[in-house]
Design a protein around this nucleic acid. Structure first.
Length: 578
RNA sequence: CGGGACGUAGCUCAGCCCGGUAGAGCACUUGGUUUGGGGCCAAGACGUCGCAGGUUCAAAUCCUGUCGUCCCGACCA
């Protein structure tokens, strides 16, 4: 392929609307262009990378027993109503109307479609297990598209769905996909690791996310350096706060005291009251499926809303407004408490870290007053104890006991064991060997293909541009003659080398642009080809070409040896050695 | 949806405070020159200053509204 015959519009300057390095490089290296927020055109070089990642995914999915299909992006709303997600996923569903004003849904994911298919096509345990996958464009009405391909309204996803006759079978399918994902990311040259994850709106009871460590990621991952534990912060647990919860109460009854104007944890912790945050009980009011509900945490802890959703089983939940708090209890936020004045029907969830807490302070449910000497188990009607707090760095790992750490990461894949959530609702059943009817046991597995592409760039770049792993580079080799005129010695040597490499199946681009050397060198580094072979008059006169691995040092190579050396270098790269 | 920033040439940006002729660099076209790390010289083309109202003799500039982009939060592969 000649550079002048394709289209790689590089940019010398950084576009002003790209914030993170991978987004800047996507644009600067001429891989994509924005149509509008969250919508991108893949240009030839970007498309080549996308296709290579897809090929790796297909190979590994096929190897893991996956069966490729292609489902419609346009879907009838009825199946979404049947699964219940027409409501729960409402915020991300793109809806369109046809000329008869009938509504359709643009698929953000395909549990409904595949379950509908299997409901009619799978009838017997003899047809199981099955694992279907597709690579397809998804549509999500993202509240805030961000960072180029990282979070887009339209993106390419590999999604897979397993169907088993039993829970054990489903676990085996889950494990096969988990292992396939590990291989896929490794083959893409990504350093990714699996963490325990919350299941969110997809549902299910067992889940891992595949994370690429990056400061620009949108997730916080809690992990133990021993490798004993890693989890998304939405799910993570520990042995509890570093500072133990006070259990040294006076034994006296709760005592109301005046705290005019004190409406924050910090204010109560400051003079004159000087009650440490760890000795306070924080009272939060949420509307859980429209029901006012109390959540009690230690003053220095943060409520984890993913845990709130999981523990309550809520479809929708949000913090109550000041007015709603006042209506449910008798005070505004800042003076709320659960010692008295909580209507019998209001549920009170208390965080496990508060178990046994004595001598605590909390709002008196009366503006301007707090209680002290509160013993939670004696003085508060707790409906349910639950893990609700967000883990903080430094807390002891539940497995190893060592301090946990927290780092940012990009989620590139997510595997779920779904169980029978969808098959139950959509009547996807089969007859077992003994003639009884059962719901199919499902799993679902996603990889953000376009996001993975950008994650590779985010993880693999330097001051000059992208440093592609050989396995996903748009071209493996860039041949750069400094003189391109037909018949010139440099052009002749370049043409000969390219022909030999192409014959050997190497993906090579010939930079045949009539540009100054500096421009060509800068561009080859910006786009990030793994290997550049420079051909200049001076070295050619000595019978040499210049072999320059991206990020490595320049090395002269004899013309006669060049092709063999390049081929060996690329093949080593394909094997994952670089 | 809440908070913030910004919309001027293909790109990066200046001009706006303090109203009066629309600018620079890069990119592009032509010619010359140069030729191992984003050259140099000359000439040229490229703009409804996001859009709509308003104030004014006069608006890129001031006011109002609106649309869009980007960042921070809630959502997710």
């Amino acid at each position: 392929m000649n550079w002048t015959q394709t289209f790689i519009p590089t940019l010398k300057e950084t576009p002003s609307d790209a914030e993170i390095v991978s987004h800047q490089l996507l644009l600067r290296a001429g891989l994509v262009r924005k149509l509008t927020g969250g919508l991108y055109t893949f240009l030839p070089a970007g498309l080549r990378v996308l296709r290579k990642i897809e090929r790796i995914i297909r190979e590994e999915m096929d190897r893991a027993g996956g069966i490729e299909v292609l489902m419609p992006a346009l879907q009838p709303p009825e199946i979404w109503q049947q699964s219940g997600r027409y409501e729960t996923a409402r915020d991300v569903l793109f809806k369109v109307k046809d000329s008869a004003q009938r509504e359709w849904v643009l698929g953000p994911t395909h549990e409904e479609v595949i379950t509908h298919l299997c409901a009619s096509e799978i009838n017997s345990y003899r047809q199981l297990p099955k694992c279907f996958y597709q690579i397809q464009t998804k549509f999500r009405d993202e509240i805030r598209p961000r960072f180029g391909l990282m979070r887009a309204k339209e993106f390419v996803m590999k999604d897979a769905y397993s169907f088993d006759a039993s829970d054990d079978g489903a676990m085996a399918s889950y494990k096969r996909m988990y292992d396939a994902y590990t291989r896929i990311f490794a083959r893409c040259g990504l350093r990714a690791f699996a963490v325990e994850a919350d299941t969110g709106v997809i549902g299910g009871n067992h889940s891992h996310e595949f994370m690429v460590p990056a400061e620009t990621g949108e997730n916080d991952v809690v992990y133990c350096e021993t490798g004993a534990y890693a989890a998304n912060i939405e799910k993570a647990t520990s042995r509890g706060p570093v500072e133990a919860t006070p259990s040294d109460g006076t034994g006296g009854a709760p005592e109301k005291f005046a705290t005019p104007g004190v409406v924050t944890i910090d204010a109560l912790a400051a003079a004159p009251h000087s009650i440490p945050a760890s000795r306070q009980i924080k009272t939060l009011v949420f509307l859980v499926d429209s029901e006012p509900t109390l959540f009690l945490l230690r003053g220095d802890d943060q409520l984890n809303e993913a845990k709130l959703m999981a523990r309550t089983g809520a479809v929708n939940a949000r913090a109550a407004t000041a007015e709603e708090c006042a209506a449910a209890l008798s005070a505004k936020p800042g003076s709320l408490g659960a010692v008295s004045g909580v209507p019998e029907k209001v549920k009170v969830y208390a965080d496990e870290a508060l178990r046994g807490a004595r001598g605590m302070a909390t709002g008196a449910n009366e503006d301007g007053f707090h209680f002290r000497h509160v013993d939670i188990e004696r003085d508060i009607r707790v409906t349910q104890w639950a893990d609700l707090r967000t883990v903080r760095a430094g807390e002891a790992c539940g497995a190893s006991g060592l301090p946990l750490k927290i780092r940012r990461a990009i989620e590139v894949g997510h595997v779920f064991k779904l169980g029978t959530k969808y098959s139950d609702r959509m009547n996807a059943t089969f007859l077992a060997e003994n003639g009884t009817r059962h719901s199919l046991v499902m799993g679902c597995y996603g990889i953000g293909v376009t996001r993975t592409l950008q994650a590779v760039i985010e993880q693999s770049n330097d001051k000059d541009g992208i440093v592609w792993p050989v396995a996903v580079a748009p071209f493996e080799v860039c041949v750069t003659p400094l003189g391109v005129a037909a018949g010139s010695p440099t052009r002749a040597a370049a043409d000969a080398l390219v022909a030999e490499l192409e014959a050997a199946g190497i993906e090579v681009i010939l930079d045949d642009r009539d540009e100054r050397p500096g421009v060509k060198f800068k561009d080859s580094e910006l786009v990030g080809f793994p290997l550049r072979v420079g051909i200049g008059e001076k070295s050619l006169a000595k019978g040499e070409l210049e072999f320059k691995p991206r990020g490595g040092v320049l090395e002269p190579v004899m013309v006669a040896d060049a092709a063999a050396k390049v081929i060996a270098w690329v093949q080593a790269g394909r094997a994952g050695l670089r």
